[in-house]
């Protein structure tokens, strides 16, 4: 009788240890090396996007568990695929044949995890573009209390020299400005758990091509057929093309 109980105890212990090891391996272990280009192509082609990849351009690591892979499709579209290390596998979480600039928000509440990504058609006469962080100027008077909000217009120049694609962390200064906004806006709401403030409610990102050509022309190049796939778990914000009329002091370019 006693022996039986001992065995039960031992096997229970073994089971606990094994399942902990498995859980650790499955959820928390260090990511394995990134898949080869052939594997990437196979995985992208097997998604429901009806997309066929012609060339994998490069693998761009974002952080330990996130990566972006720019590619060119059979239809000559320049696109981006977003990869996430999840459940012990590198998985493609999002594919887009429109390579216009986007912001990948790894954690939507934390601007220090925001990354600009792009893959802009190399055939165009565009060698450079500008990214913007904009908050509109405004004022309001409530019950005699005056409020003036200065315009925020921050600019970052990105060169497309030699490469059509890229990943760039949100500039540190932008991050600081956004964080100061989030802090004050969050403090306005008494309940932090249910009303989280997201910076995109007042601040927007935008971009502008640095050359003569307008942004709309660039985005509409390629096959014109937009293909994509998303598992719905990523926070990727499409950055709008600005007009020169949206920019104050545009003379500098």
């Amino acid at each position: 009788m006693k022996k039986k109980r001992l065995w039960a105890l031992i096997s229970l212990g073994v089971m606990v240890v094994l399942s902990s090891i498995f859980i650790y391996w499955f959820y928390f272990s260090k990511p394995s090396p990134f898949p080869t280009n052939e594997q990437l192509v196979k995985e992208i082609n097997s998604t429901p996007s009806e997309l066929t990849v012609a060339v994998i351009q490069k693998t761009l690591p974002v952080d330990d568990r996130h990566a972006v892979v720019p590619f060119i499709s059979k239809e000559d579209d320049y696109g981006l695929s977003y990869w996430v290390w999840k459940n012990h596998k590198w998985r493609v979480a999002n594919i887009d044949t429109n390579g216009g600039p986007r912001v990948w928000k790894i954690n939507r509440k934390d601007p220090s995890t925001f990354y600009f990504v792009w893959n802009i058609h190399h055939g165009e006469q565009i060698s450079t573009f500008y990214l913007y962080l904009i908050r509109d100027r405004g004022y309001h008077v409530t019950k005699g209390v005056e409020n003036y909000n200065p315009r925020v217009q921050m600019e970052k120049n990105v060169s497309l020299h030699e490469k059509s694609y890229g990943v760039m962390k949100l500039p540190v200064e932008w991050e600081k400005i956004m964080n100061s906004f989030i802090k004050v806006e969050s403090a306005k709401q008494p309940d932090l758990f249910f009303n989280h403030f997201f910076p995109e409610q007042t601040m927007t990102f935008g971009w502008l091509p640095g050359d003569k050509i307008s942004g709309k022309e660039i985005v509409s190049k390629g096959s014109g057929i937009s293909r994509g796939y998303s598992n719905g778990n990523l926070d990727i914000e499409n950055i709008g093309v600005l007009n020169k009329e949206n920019i104050e002091l545009p003379l500098k370019k």
């Binding site: 100027r137 008077v141 005056e146 200065p150 002091l249």
Partner: peptide
């Protein structure tokens, strides 16, 4: 704080090309 006036001053007689922000810096 003359919010309304500051706002208007920014746009009055100022095209995009020379529009100045009254508070162009943030202390962080």
């Amino acid at each position: 704080i003359y919010s309304n006036q500051w706002y208007d001053d920014t746009y009055k007689n100022h095209e995009l090309i020379d529009r100045k922000e009254r508070f162009p810096y943030q202390l962080i």
